[in-house]
Design a protein around this nucleic acid. Structure first.
Lengths: 335, 335
DNA sequence: GTGAAAGCGCTAACAG
DNA sequence: CTGTTAGCGCTTTCAC
């Protein structure tokens, strides 16, 4: 059907040199006389030669590919990071391959295995799943290939790029509190995730600072998908009036979207019937009515830092430690 | 530093068999006695053997990877499709590698070259760039590897999965017209792209059906990025009142977002000051005030169909032809 | 049922 | 400066 791609042998034959010479002009690691170099170059053009990276990777026993594991490719937060990351890394000659676990630990396992099979040079991961189940897997993974954790913490010795979740949650809760709300419903990420626990803690701290008792009925543990934001609102609204929150803090843009949809469905007005603030800052937050108050995460910085750490790790340095960045309060009109 | 991964030789040594036997139990293509099979399996566990897909690909001269080229990974439209596509394809044993051209033809060229270097089995592409510049490239590409075009047409002989753009544009323009608007500003995709031309034509047809003359001043050619939506609105509003559109049709969700932001910035009310309708249906359209009327594209169907066509092409069938799908009018309150 | 050996396309000693 | 050659880890005849 389609004829096979030309190999280095075809080029060599065409140019009347050995395959080694072709390789030399390709890699530029060894001097070749200008005359032969030009002959080779012309031969390459003539036979439409495209180097086979598979063979190259096998031979050099290294694949210039970084695996990137995200939990949800449709959450705008991740494409933003992936974009920054991919630009930095491709400047350094690396390619990335992105896969989405859909917050499914078993899928996550498959993806990592697949990364390993293709001998990725390193793995950048936003891990999902309960800590006690996945920590060991990731620990073993660290022994095999450089790992950089992103967004979510695990108790393993590798480099990590995280938000200062506690402070971000505390700050935005303070903001809501300062607007006169004392009953704040929290739509939390799964509490077995570091972002879940840390954001809950920040929320709790803020409450404590204001001398307000945390009401467990006001904490809804979501699953990070859109429906669970809607369910959270339904749940909050089912509370009897004295218990019902007057404001909601949603800990992820996707759940916020679900919450917003449910709020609209119920004909509730923001911020009068219920105020809402959110983690993350997708572009459309700005054009909602009212625009949504939120803590923006520095996605571009995340991407760059992760790429930088991975690059260092790849050079053989052992990079470890937590790099925490601050969220930025974006005050708009939803609370 | 890190010890190299175990190879098939390590397994063979551990199990006391030849590497061929190990390969046989791995591929299952040849009978192996249960006893040795079990010994091999145990050895695999013991040495933590993970097959090297690079070597496998080289040997079999085929890489079970499909390259997916999109123009903007941050446009929610594409992750939606990629998700469907990736699920279908991974069921068939294929992996995908996604890359974003950012609507940059030169980047697109690099990406395709990189796909070719890694000997992808096929390429699914949403091409960018003026037809006369890229058509030839893609034509040559088709000679090398199966290509399926998505979203945007090029005059080359391969399979294509497209929206019925003309009808979608016509239908939604009719809708706007039926609401009493006769001056409709069009925020068009670049007109050198099939989606640009076809949507413009649909818009023009609808106008013609209503006996309305197309005013070129009401057609703004955007670049598919967010700013150009905002610029379009600024432009429309700079028109003197008699010329100014009372409604806007934006041909991509991203440009719509830009338009929405600019509309808000100017304190304009939708739909009274200006009505707006859009192509695409990102989830947040539903919770805007007012919710946005739009033509939704069947992203999941796109993804599945593209995967199906690619799978067939990979089996050696020569699949060609255009598969057009209808957009779905989602009538809400923005017009 | 199992093994020896060739070779996928490439790089990198090592010779010359 | 150029060529010969030995693999990288795997699959697959071809023998036994």
């Amino acid at each position: 059907m389609r004829d096979k791609p030309a190999t280095i042998h075809d080029v060599a034959a065409k140019a009347g040199v050995s395959i080694a010479t072709v390789s030399y002009v390709l890699t530029g690691k060894k001097r070749v006389s200008p005359a032969t170099a030009e002959r080779v170059l012309r031969a390459i053009k003539e036979v439409d030669y495209i180097p086979n990276r598979i063979a190259k990777s096998l031979r050099k026993a290294k694949n210039l590919v970084i695996g990137v594991l995200v939990p949800d490719i449709r959450n705008p937060f991740f494409p933003d990071i992936v974009k920054a990351l991919s630009e930095s890394l491709s400047d350094k000659g690396f390619q990335i391959v992105v896969a989405s676990s859909d917050e499914n630990p078993s899928k996550q396992k498959d993806i990592i295995h697949s990364f390993l099979e293709q001998r990725v040079a390193g793995i950048i991961a936003v891990p999902t799943g309960a800590n006690y189940l996945v920590t060991k897997d990731f620990e073993e993974l660290c022994a095999l290939v450089p790992v950089v954790l992103l967004d979510r913490d695990l108790d393993i010795p590798c480099a990590k790029v995280l938000l200062n979740n506690r402070k971000a949650a505390r700050d935005i809760t303070h903001l809501i509190l300062s607007r006169g709300h004392s009953r704040i419903g929290l739509i939390a990420p799964p509490l077995h995730l570091s972002i879940g626990l840390e954001r809950l803690e920040g929320y709790a701290e803020a409450l404590r600072n204001w001398g307000i008792l945390l009401d467990p009925a006001l904490v809804y543990e979501g699953n990070l998908f859109i429906e669970s934001g809607a369910q959270a609102v339904a749940y909050f609204m089912s509370l009897k009036e004295s218990q019902r929150p007057t404001a909601i803090l949603s800990c992820s843009d996707v759940m916020t979207l679900g919450a917003l949809i449910e709020i609209r469905r119920r004909g509730l007005k923001i911020p009068d019937d219920v105020a809402i603030a959110s983690f993350d800052n997708p572009e459309y937050f700005e054009c909602l009515s009212p625009p949504i108050t939120c803590v923006a995460q520095p996605t571009t910085i995340f991407g760059k830092k992760v790429a930088e750490l991975m690059a260092e790790a790849l050079e053989g340095k052992k990079v470890t430690g937590i790099y925490r960045y601050e969220g930025e309060l974006v005050i708009r009109d939803s609370v």
